[in-house]
Design a protein around this nucleic acid. Structure first.
Length: 747
DNA sequence: GTGCCTCGAGTTCC
DNA sequence: CTCGAGGCAC
């Protein structure tokens, strides 16, 4: 479809044609994203878009209305999401030989390996690309997914099929096999690609990794096919038959199956051998022909890997030993203060743009007040503190090759007129006092929801992925609605009245720039869909300090219903106040040791503690229950209590709740006989270390506690068990020895 | 009281 | 990704 025939059309004709094309593209998008079943070929789709663009070039007012300009559709929304059968984890990082030594010591300690027992690890280059999971069923590639957040990635199967290093079929593979590895681009291919891009007038890529990422995430697989992507396999996810007894054997098997594996991988015994491998790989870095950013060490024996297991986001049996970060010097042009969701004032360096590790950096974090000043609140110098001033030459690096940081300052080049930075005492956004709690590194705005910066950040958090995750309501839209006169959104409840307010208003959302009939309707539908919300997401979305995703899940599971939580919090309030008062009294007493002059404050704190001490047993019980909840300590409990007792915040919560139905938390899947049970280990364990026993129990869904109580389900007692075993007997709790326990969990 | 380990909060660039 | 700090075991 060329656009020559457009020449014959008059303006109304063009507009009609534009509408027809826009509808067609929108329908194709929908089919592609939601059903993952494209109803037209990629080439036809491209042609449609080109024709649309040709019309928009002549009638620019259309451009803002069409599918090409639709807001709320960043590239990440353009691939279907897929859940990984097995989570794709990241690796813990080591930066020094000492870190590596610690890692080995931890592994040995966890496994309780004898001093003389050998521990073999593999060392392989860490490719700087993007990880990809390939699922083969009956030997055929059925799914390729990016890592995403580890739980859920993007379906890029069509694109992965165009990569020559990725076999479409495997001979003699297990019935189900997920192969994991890295997609990357070689230096020569990268340079050639950028030359082609320049010649074609397209934008060039900053580095091979960006080029690889950009190439893999093309909606048009034909574009990906034209890009010289390569793939190394180094790991696996779900599989119906093990690939081998060791990492080395499994990777060799992957090579047999037809995958490219890295030729530099080798087995090493002991710290020195690992570090030697690291040095050698680093020395060969420049001649490899592709980017690497470190060396990965893995415990070779897969049975040991299995015993070591996983922490929440990383395996215990592997670590990435990074190469030193690239550094660059530049001028510090200014220091801005940003206000975060919790009111934290964070200093950001505005820099003379400089290339660091292949990316142009113009902003960098300055951590906090003390870091800039180079000394702490009391005036004593701090470790790594710099006394950084506007106008200084500063050294920048990208931590983990991502986050730009100011690492050093060149005092010799300091301009004579440079003055020390004065950290604001008032919030730059709302003018409220910004205070620093004793012992805290950050200064916080006290304005609460009065502060527009905090209010916006709270809303951004509310719609964020782990919370309400409303499609079409991203950061940009939140900022727009917050400042909007016609359809203001100042607090979460306002989101749920948007549609009704829009229907009643004269200037409808669908007629606005950046919105159309379709996108407005989609947004309202997405909001409707979230009127029913899982308990934990709601709790997380409220943005209460110290209440993260994990804590929210724990609390939701503990209380089961929203009403139970609210009732309990209301009951516990006096006890919460008593707890704070007692803390304050303690603080004041500590201060008194230094300054007798604080007498009046102590007396006041004591009086407050006395008043607050009039706590009913019911209140105390509610507080104890709250603080006894898994993952909840006094700090989170107080924060939660404060939020619900603060009239402003409670008002916003109640207004929000009027629009919502809360889904009770899902019961933990019963995957093992001990799932959901509380287990206590006591006495000496002979077959494994305590850490290992705990990790394994938790991996089976059990909760491991330190002391026996009425809530304990099971006690595992080894030789030398004393009071805990007696306590268990008294309470009539089942007691197992270590062998019986291992049989129970099927080990 | 001390020392892990994990979570929470804030960070940049594409 | 890193840092600080909360939670919890020893």
């Amino acid at each position: 479809m060329a656009d020559e025939d457009l020449q014959g059309l008059d303006e109304p004709g063009l507009r009609a044609e534009w509408q027809r094309l826009a509808d067609r593209v929108a329908a194709a998008n929908l089919a592609y994203h939601q059903a993952d079943a494209p109803d037209i070929s990629d080439a036809d789709y491209d042609a449609l878009k080109r024709r649309l663009a040709a019309i928009e070039a002549r009638l620019p007012d259309l451009a803002a209305l069409g599918p090409s300009a639709q807001i709320g559709a960043p590239p990440s929304e353009t691939f279907a999401k897929v859940r990984h059968a097995q989570r794709m984890l990241s690796l813990e990082n080591a930066f020094t030989g000492e870190d590596v030594a610690d890692f080995i010591a931890r592994v040995r300690g966890f496994l309780n390996l004898a001093e003389a027992a050998p521990l073999v690890l593999t060392a392989e280059p860490k490719i700087d690309g993007l990880s990809l999971s390939l699922r083969y069923e009956a030997g055929r590639l059925v799914l390729a997914a990016t890592r995403g957040d580890g739980e859920t990635g993007e379906n890029v199967t069509a694109n992965a099929r165009t990569i020559a290093d990725i076999p479409q079929t495997l001979a003699g593979a297990p019935a189900v096999l997920e192969v994991r590895g890295e997609v990357y681009m070689g230096h020569a291919d990268f340079a050639a690609l950028n030359e082609r891009q320049t010649a074609a007038g397209d934008k060039t890529f900053a580095n091979p990794r960006n080029a690889a990422a950009g190439s893999l995430r093309q909606l048009d697989a034909a574009v990906t096919a034209a890009r010289p992507l390569r793939f190394f396999a180094y790991s696996w996810g779900e599989m119906s038959t093990p690939l081998g007894p060791t990492q080395t054997a499994a990777v060799a098997r992957l090579a047999e199956l037809g995958f490219k594996v890295n030729p530099l991988m080798r087995r090493c015994e002991g710290l020195e051998a690992l570090l030697a491998a690291w040095r050698e790989i680093e020395q060969g870095r420049a001649t490899l022909g592709y980017d690497i950013d470190g060396v990965v060490y893995k415990v070779d024996d897969l049975a040991l890997q299995d015993r070591l297991g996983f922490r929440s986001t990383t395996p215990r049996w592997a670590i990435a030993h990074k190469f030193p970060a690239e550094l660059a010097w530049t001028r510090l042009l200014g220091i801005d203060i940003q206000v975060g969701r919790t009111g934290a004032l964070s200093p950001v360096a505005r820099l003379q743009p400089v290339t660091v590790g292949g990316v142009v950096v113009s902003n960098a974090t300055l951590h906090n007040e003390d870091y800039i000043a180079g000394r702490d609140a009391k005036g004593s110098p701090i470790r790594d503190g710099k006394d950084i001033r506007v106008g200084d030459w500063v050294q920048v690096y990208r931590a983990g090759d991502v986050i730009p940081k100011v690492a050093d300052v060149d005092l010799a080049q300091r301009p004579p007129e440079a003055v020390a930075f004065t950290f604001p005492r008032l919030c730059p956004e709302c003018g409220s006092e910004a205070v620093r709690e004793e012992g805290d590194a950050v200064r916080r705005c006290t304005g609460g929801l009065i502060c527009p910066a905090q209010a916006i950040e709270q809303l951004r958090h509310f719609v964020s992925r782990g919370a309400f995750d409303i499609e079409g309501l991203g950061v940009k839209q939140i900022e727009m609605f917050f400042a909007d006169d016609q359809l203001p959104v100042k607090e979460p409840a306002d989101i749920f009245t948007l549609a009704a307010r829009d229907a009643a208003s004269l200037t409808r959302l669908r007629n606005r720039d950046g919105f159309g009939e379709k996108s407005a309707a989609n947004l309202f539908q997405a909001i409707e869909d979230r009127r029913t919300i899982p308990f934990a997401r709601l709790l997380f979305g409220l943005g209460i300090r110290h209440m993260g995703e994990v804590a929210a899940q724990d609390v939701a599971r503990h209380f089961a219903t929203w009403a139970a939580l609210v009732e309990s919090l209301d009951h516990a309030r006096p006890a919460a106040l008593a707890h704070r008062a007692a803390d304050a009294a303690e603080d004041a007493e500590r201060m008194a040791a230094a300054a007798e002059a604080r007498r009046p404050r102590i007396a006041e704190a004591r009086r407050a503690a006395m008043t607050a001490a009039q706590v009913t047993p019911a209140a105390q019980a509610a507080w104890d229950d709250l603080v006894g909840t898994d993952g909840v300590g006094p700090v989170l409990a107080l924060s939660l209590s404060d939020s619900f007792a603060n009239p402003q915040e409670r008002g916003a919560i109640d207004r929000l709740m009027a629009h919502l139905t809360v889904l009770p938390p899902e019961a933990r899947a019963k995957v093992s006989p001990v799932a959901g049970k509380t287990v206590v280990f006591t006495g000496t364990l002979e077959r494994m270390t305590r850490a290992e026993a705990k990790a394994r129990a938790e991996a089976m869904g059990a909760k491991v506690a330190g002391s026996v109580s009425a809530r304990t389900d099971l006690v595992v007692a080894g030789p030398g068990a004393g009071s805990k075993a007696r306590e268990a007997e008294k309470l009539g709790i089942e007691i197992l020895d270590e062998d019986a326990w291992l049989r129970l969990i099927g080990a």
